[in-house]
Design a protein around this nucleic acid. Structure first.
Length: 471
DNA sequence: TGAAGTTTGAC
DNA sequence: TCAAACTTC
């Protein structure tokens, strides 16, 4: 049987894998490879938490391939040279992969595709990650969308999803060509086990993704429209890292969720699929506006007076020592688990960009390194949104009050107590703003900051004034 | 997928 | 008196 290279990237699954399917449909034995080449991603090489996840996800994929009589071969880049050498040594007839949409990767992959084709090899990329390719939806004028609502209306009107596909129980094995390097040689696993608290919560890989989906459907999906805003509960799908690494296809998530549609569940199902729509919109924007991971979408903010020398403020934010419990709880949740609830991401983001008046790229960089679901499309969309600089963003003057938000979405103060145990002894009305009861705070949690690093009312006023000045 | 201040209208 | 509606940033 002739061979094909199946080049795994952010599609670390077998089911619903269009590249793997293409190889099998062509009657070619898949040589499954992963090529480690972080330098080819420029300034957005994967961060530490992301690498820790990938290490385990690659191990899971290899185990799954072995159960089917195949295996995953690992290599160091550069990607093109590695693929060319694999094509030669395996005498492969084709190379298949699933597309990524990060600007540097799109450019690199286009070069790789044309180089392979230039040497007479069949090279094909497929859609393994999105419900709609970024170029599939266009405005009436023929351009990209910049506003979510019309984008999503268009998507719903052209709703056609890939049909689920299950990988065969046995894969043709191929021993041709080099064996590759050991997983540890890629250096993805942290040298010091700072990620120890991640793994009771997460199971990287395709099996973990399916299990997470089932848990969501049996649990938080009912009541999702309201429950997703509650960081004190399991109210969200927690699928984001699995979707980022392609451990499950979004169309499979949609199909599974739709399967239980009733009149009662319809609003929750629609609300969740709309969130997947934001993920689609993020990829659409990243593809059409490739400078947005670095630059404000709205050029007006070039004149905005960001705070000077905010390094002490930024450090307090990093460490979860701002003195505002809901913010510090969120930052510590992320540090411990590699993930932060989305409502809390908005609160900590608003605090950084508005009260601290620090440019969103500082936040984007920190999230990039600390989140297991760090994704250039979603991270950029989220930070441009909360910073007020984005395409369809919250206006800059929409400033979250972290005390009000905590009262509303963590009413029993349970989320705060979980991540800031030193504040658990402060009774609930005071736990949201402990600086208002200085003697209690000093007695119960003497190590916690005695006051917010930025005054809530003063910071809000300063941000509004700065916005006015820049107009 | 804000907050805060003001107005309005039902008691 | 108070909550919902409205307005402004």
């Amino acid at each position: 049987m002739a061979q094909a290279i199946v080049w795994f990237r952010n599609d670390l699954r077998l089911d619903d894998n269009p590249a793997l399917r293409a190889a099998l449909d062509a009657d070619l034995a898949p040589v499954c490879v992963y090529i480690h080449a972080p330098d080819e991603e420029g300034t957005w090489a994967p961060g530490a938490a992301s690498n820790a996840w990938r290490h385990r996800s690659l191990a899971a994929l290899d185990a799954q391939l072995r159960r089917r009589g195949s295996r995953l071969r690992l290599f160091h880049g550069p990607s093109l040279a590695t693929l060319q050498s694999l094509v030669d040594t395996c005498e492969a007839q084709a190379v298949f992969w699933n597309r990524r949409y990060e600007p540097r990767i799109e450019t690199r992959d286009a070069l790789i595709k044309s180089a392979l084709r230039g040497s007479g090899v069949r090279a094909e990329s497929h859609n393994g990650a999105l419900l709609f390719e970024p170029w599939a939806l266009q405005t009436g004028q023929g351009g990209p969308y910049k506003v979510f609502t019309p984008f999503w209306r268009k998507a719903l009107s052209e709703w056609r999803l890939q049909t689920p596909w299950e990988a065969p129980r046995t894969l043709p094995s191929s021993e041709a060509g080099p064996a590759g390097v050991a997983l540890d040689a890629l250096g993805l696993r942290p040298a010091r086990p700072w990620d120890a608290d991640f793994w009771p919560l997460w199971q990287p890989g395709e099996a973990g993704a399916s299990e997470t989906l089932e848990i969501f459907i049996d649990g938080a999906l009912r009541g999702y429209s309201a429950g997703r805003d509650r960081p004190d509960r399991v109210g969200t799908s927690r699928l984001s890292p699995h979707l980022h690494f392609g451990e499950i296809a979004p169309w499979r998530v949609v199909a599974a969720i739709e399967a239980g549609r009733t009149a009662a569940t319809a609003p929750d199902i629609d609300a969740y699929i709309r969130e997947l729509g934001w993920r689609e919109f993020g990829h659409h924007l990243l593809h059409h506006f490739p400078h947005t991971p670095e630059q404000d979408f709205n050029p007006r903010f070039a004149r905005f007076p960001w705070a000077r020398d905010a390094s002490a403020l930024i450090e307090a934010w990093h460490l979860g020592r701002t003195g505002v419990p809901i913010i510090d709880a969120g930052m510590r949740e992320m540090w411990s688990t590699g993930w932060m609830h989305n409502r809390v991401r908005m609160i900590v983001g608003s605090w950084l960009c508005k009260h601290m008046r620090v440019h969103w790229r500082e936040g984007a960089r920190w999230f990039w390194d600390t989140l297991v679901d760090a994704d250039l499309a979603n991270n950029t969309l989220g930070w441009q949104w909360i910073g007020g600089t984005g395409a369809d963003a919250a206006p800059y003057f929409r400033i979250f009050n972290p005390v009000t938000q905590a009262q509303k979405f963590d009413p029993a103060g349970a989320y705060i107590a979980k991540w800031l145990p030193e504040l658990a002894g402060i009774p609930v009305p005071l736990r949201f703003s402990p600086w208002t009861a200085p003697d209690v705070l000093k007695r119960v949690a003497p190590g916690y900051p005695s006051a917010p690093v930025v005054d809530l009312a003063g910071g809000r006023e300063a941000a509004l004034a700065a916005y006015q000045r820049s107009r």
